[in-house]
């Protein structure tokens, strides 16, 4: 399936782009992270410490075990600092 993967804040800077479309068979967010880290050193560095990373699947806050069946968009970002 095709997925739009989005990055925000320092993850966007480390990956070097705000979004990309990937072809994946990942069943969960955790599987997708493994595939993304294999793309290049930039992705690997951005996603190496997952304690500092939050994830949204189709714009809903999710976690590493969230299934990706029927998902269209996955976003990775640091803990939020609004307000």
């Amino acid at each position: 399936m095709k997925l739009d993967v989005l990055y925000f804040a320092w993850l966007r800077e480390r990956v070097g782009q705000p979004r990309e479309r990937v072809e994946t068979k990942a069943a969960t967010v955790r599987d997708l992270v493994v595939e993304l880290r294999a793309i290049d050193d930039y992705h690997d560095a951005a996603l190496s410490d997952l304690t500092a990373v939050r994830v949204a699947v189709d714009q809903q806050l999710s976690d590493l075990d969230t299934p990706l069946a029927d998902a269209r968009e996955v976003a990775f970002f640091p803990p939020m600092t609004g307000g």
Binding site: F8, A9, A56, L61, M80, T81, G82, G83
Partner: peptide, 10 residues
């Protein structure tokens, strides 16, 4: 809003 709305400050 501070920790659940997707904003990031620099």
């Amino acid at each position: 809003l501070k920790s659940r709305a997707p904003f990031w400050k620099r």
